[in-house]
């Protein structure tokens, strides 16, 4: 009768399930102890040294049970793999950001003549530049890029000093930032979060199903 009552009450049913699980586990553990703790020479007189020495052995190794413990890896391979993994997560280079005031007062960024062009006036450069009118600007082109219609062959270094208040241009002066690369391997927290999310989804589905059933019953 008690069992019937327990089966009827969901809470008790769950409690019964816990208890039965523990009981099954305990019984299985007990069976394991009994079956594994055997003595292959039960009742043998202790005086038999052959039986004693043979009986303490875990048994002869079978071929099927052999698995290599250590995998042979060459040192070069290890280095390669390390580099491959590390290549995915490289440290960020510190951003080379020059304050605008420094840009205005500093010398041109490059002294190589092939990267330098005659000073241009503001009208000839980008519109909306905050640099005051008449300031000499220097374009710095990437290597290999044609100077295009900005004209002419590269001139020699035209002074380029900060003497006249002219400065370097921010164009091309700030290297692009290295994008933030996520870690290569998911962290345990990520796994835990994923499992928690799955559990919540399952719980929500179950709850939804049961509530629908209840509402159907209520309708009926």
């Amino acid at each position: 009768m008690n069992v019937k009552l327990a089966a009827a009450n969901p809470k008790r049913r769950a409690a019964w399930r816990v208890a039965s699980g523990l009981a099954i586990a305990a019984s299985l553990v007990g069976v394991a102890e009994v079956t594994c703790g055997d003595d292959r020479f039960p009742g043998r007189p202790i005086g038999n040294v052959i039986a004693l020495l043979e009986g303490r052995s875990p048994g002869e190794r079978t071929g099927a049970s052999v698995i290599k413990l250590k995998k042979k890896i060459s040192i070069n391979k290890i280095e390669e793999s390390r580099q491959r993994v590390l290549g995915k997560v490289f440290p960020l280079a510190p951003p080379h950001v020059v304050p605008p005031e420094d840009l205005l007062t500093s010398t041109p960024l490059l002294d190589f003549t092939e990267f330098q062009y005659p000073p241009l006036t503001l009208d000839e450069t980008i519109q909306g530049n905050s640099i005051s009118s008449g300031a000499a600007l220097y374009y710095v082109y990437p290597v290999g890029q044609s100077s295009g219609d900005n004209g002419g062959s590269p001139a020699t270094n035209n002074g380029g000093s900060s003497g006249g208040g002219a400065g370097g241009s921010p164009i091309g002066g700030v290297p692009p930032l290295v994008p933030d690369v996520p870690a290569a391997v998911p962290e345990p927290e990520a796994w835990a979060l994923m499992l928690l999310g799955s559990a919540l989804c399952a719980a929500a589905l179950r709850r939804d199903k049961s509530s629908r059933r209840r509402s159907f019953d209520a309708d009926a």
Partner: peptide
Amino acid sequence: LLSFGVMGAGGLAAAFTI
């Protein structure tokens, strides 16, 4: 869910012991 978890853990523990 807890009850199922306990049952599963018990089974795993027994299997591990064996």
